[in-house]
Design a protein around this nucleic acid. Structure first.
Lengths: 161, 161
DNA sequence: GTCATATAGTTAATATATGAACTATATGGT
DNA sequence: ACCATATAGTTCATATATTAACTATATGAC
């Protein structure tokens, strides 16, 4: 099925380059919506799951990540992390611990409750993801990643003005 | 540069399939942020630009699109379209015209002002997009689209439960 | 003709995202 | 020691997205 048909368009895309970018957008959107639907059934959102995965896999010597570290690993503005961690703290998924070495930092750490919820969701999530991606051969997965990496490099080097 | 380095991660991804999906997410996110930065300089958002492109290229005999048609072409919930069109109407970019044939429908049409803003932004936008995507050969663009289309099909066919 | 059912649009509560302006803290050159 | 500058986090106004519950309208079975 073509993207045109998937979106129910009446006419073809006028710009082939734009269509290529839309493939990337709409694939990400579909994956994100499906993931969010899945996590909701586990009492989480996809963003909250991602925060917990980063806290468990990428923490430094402090035993957590600062809010700015999280924002960089998630490619979002640091203002966004404030309210995100507010909600997660209220839900007892994570906690803020002031860094005694530098009082500007909060170290965000996952709670025992958060880790329990995460591990329960993660096992099933990883199966689902493998099932999706296994539709591509190993070599195709590699090709896809390489093509997208080159696109990102082009995007980064583009000036706005 | 690897995705791990782009995100400033300390450790490698544990799940190769998950990493493949993250390539799709983060490429879409980067393109979207760059596009939004560009459109902001033209007094628009990327979503508003997309609505106007659909109205100009995909309108039916009514001379516009209904809100549900827009929601399907954009893969978003129809509730989202209500407030989106509210804001665009306030900014005089589009207008709602009641359908006399079926009073449940609003036909959304672009205004002269909206079309003027759109055309000014579109010319530059298409150049930028071509410049980004031209980093891939024609055959590579085709391969990328095909791989992503197969991924979307796998995502669609996945049950949550 | 009437009524069950489906569809379009809106509203409210909530989550995620931005940029800009703000406070608090740290650092490096003098 | 002092001050310019940079960095971390917060707050505010705003845009985009969801689901659930609601109203209005249309349609099809009988």
């Amino acid at each position: 099925m073509s993207l045109k048909d998937e979106l129910g368009l009446r006419h073809d895309f006028k710009n082939r380059a734009h269509e290529t970018l839309l493939h990337v957008y709409y694939t990400a959107a579909k994956a994100q919506k499906k993931a969010d639907e899945f996590f909701r059934a586990h009492g989480l959102t996809d963003v909250q799951f991602n925060v917990m995965m980063l806290l468990l896999n990428q923490s430094g010597e402090s035993g957590g990540l600062t809010q700015v570290e999280l924002s960089r690993m998630m490619l979002v503005n640091r203002a966004n992390i404030t309210t995100l961690i507010d909600r997660m703290e209220k839900a007892k998924l994570v906690m803020r611990v002031p860094d005694p070495e530098d009082r500007r930092y909060n170290i965000v750490k996952i709670t025992a409750h958060g880790e329990k919820l995460f591990r329960k969701a993660a096992a099933v999530y990883h199966d689902k993801v493998r099932s999706i991606v296994s539709g591509l051969r190993e070599s195709e997965q590699k090709d896809l990643a390489a093509l997208l990496t080159r696109l990102r490099a082009r995007i980064d080097s583009l000036s706005i003005d």
